[in-house]
């Protein structure tokens, strides 16, 4: 059974998420997202996923926020919002002449159809959750099949007490290699895109 603290934590996550995407100031959004990640890390510690919590706190809350801040410092701080008449002008001060007479509409097709798609997806997800084993059910297939093998044989075969490390580095070491390559790829991608031309 789940405790009240967990329920509150999870609810707080939803609030953070809503706040992050609805704030107009992107800098605030980023900070809220950072705290969202931190709360997420707490949730994961509550769920006994300490390794994931570490990573989330450092990578999710730390690196992602840094990246976001770096990007924001090179672009714009404010999101362009739909304005009613009489409201304040665009804080970013548009300079492009093509956009002089351009106005954003209140409801666009993407917004409405997006909402429909999202609700549909949510409905399907809820439908799929119906036949899932309950949270924490020790008889669920996910726990009884491969997981049990790891728990029983991990320690003797790999000789590392932390089973996550054992699986990560050994049984599924290849995924970890893939993970490294993903980082490498991202690095190459960022260099490719941001490297400046030599002045000749």
């Amino acid at each position: 059974m789940i405790e009240l603290l967990d329920i509150l934590l999870l609810l707080f996550l939803v609030i953070c998420a809503v706040a992050a995407i609805s704030m107009r100031d992107l800098l605030s959004s980023t900070i809220v997202l950072g705290s969202y990640s931190l709360f997420m890390a707490v949730v994961w510690t509550r769920l006994n996923a300490v390794d994931v919590a570490f990573t989330e706190a450092s990578v999710g809350a730390g690196i992602t926020t840094m990246l976001m801040l770096a990007a924001l410092s090179r672009t714009k701080r404010f999101e362009f919002l739909y304005r009613k008449k009489g409201q304040q002008e665009d804080p970013n001060k548009e300079t492009n002449p093509l956009l002089k007479n351009w106005k954003r509409k209140r409801f666009s097709v993407t917004k409405v159809s997006g909402l429909i798609v999202v609700l549909l997806t949510g409905a399907i997800l809820i439908y799929g959750t119906m036949d899932m084993p309950d949270f924490g059910d020790p008889n669920s297939p996910s726990y009884t099949h491969v997981a049990t093998m790891y728990i029983e044989r991990g320690q003797p075969e790999v000789n590392v007490p932390n089973l996550v490390t054992a699986v990560l580095a050994s049984y599924r070491g290849y995924d970890t290699l893939g993970e490294t390559i993903v980082i490498f790829t991202a690095g190459i991608g960022v260099i490719l895109m941001l490297r400046k031309r030599k002045k000749t």
């Binding site: 996923a49 390794d51 994931v52 990573t55 989330e56 990578v59 999710g60 690196i63 992602t64 990246l67 976001m68 770096a70 990007a71 090179r74 672009t75 996910s142 726990y143 491969v146 997981a147 790891y150 728990i151 991990g154 089973l163 996550v164 054992a166 699986v167 990560l168 599924r172 995924d175 970890t176 893939g178 993970e179 993903v182 980082i183 790829t185 991202a186 991608g189 960022v190 895109m193 941001l194």
Partner: peptide
Amino acid sequence: NPLPHVLMLTAIVVSVSTTAVALALIV
């Protein structure tokens, strides 16, 4: 169960990598 933890370590890394590339593109 340790397995989902392992998988999610990978997923977090993928997520931050995608973010990095996306932000570079945005710049």
